[in-house]
Design a protein around this nucleic acid. Sequence first.
DNA 1: CGGGATCCTTAAGGATACTG
DNA 2: CAGTATCCTTAAGGATCCCG
Lengths: 128, 128
Amino acid sequence: MSDDCVLPKSDVQAEACPIVQIIDRVAGKWSVSILVAAIRNPVRYTELERSVPGISRRMLTLTLRNLERDGLLERTVYPTVPPKVEYSATPSARELYGHLTGLLEWAERHQPDIIEARKAYDEQALAA
Amino acid sequence: MSDDCVLPKSDVQAEACPIVQIIDRVAGKWSVSILVAAIRNPVRYTELERSVPGISRRMLTLTLRNLERDGLLERTVYPTVPPKVEYSATPSARELYGHLTGLLEWAERHQPDIIEARKAYDEQALAA
DNA sequence: CGGGATCCTTAAGGATACTG
DNA sequence: CAGTATCCTTAAGGATCCCG
């Protein structure tokens, strides 16, 4: 336990620009979904499990741990029975969120274009 | 050849929000590096191979094809000998680039914090 | 409820050889 | 030069059981 990295390992060695690594981490499918869910108000584990569609318990836990480790989420445990744990976005995450929404907005605006571009590309490829 | 998707496959089924999928695609390690490299002026295959640090020929080709398919890169072949192929960013990609730099900038600004947060987290975890 | 540990499957990705 | 095709390794991720 407590490896250099919590997630399985994504960097082979010195693997280039660490900045790109960070983006890759933070803009990943699970991270984005979780951050978006946690940005408004603190969320609980089970809440995320339901609101993040296809996520498995394993990936939910792993991604949460990484986001916490990177200082993007704060984990608060309420020592009640049954236990209650809440994850809330840190200031750093809120700043990030602004840029993520920029990306999100771009993706939304261009989704139709992308879909059409793919169709065109695929049809073109069919003309083998 | 010419599957629904060129890259091996990242979505299991209906797998949730397609917007997040797009971001995942476009903000991936290889895509970001390639887009950044291609934004100023058209780049050639071999140029990318050298400028994108750890990328393999396979991933370079695969990622290029996907970016082309999504309408983010335009591929131009000059029928010379030896052949010359250039990849240039489309308007769509240039728009995206603005948001990517936002993310890049965030990552740069917060890199020290992240590194420290990780150290703190790891030391804390060592107190088992 | 909120996980940790383990096992197993699939997908991501690297290396290399070959080609127009 | 700019790939494609193939083979193979590793890492991502799912399913499940268990525990405080």
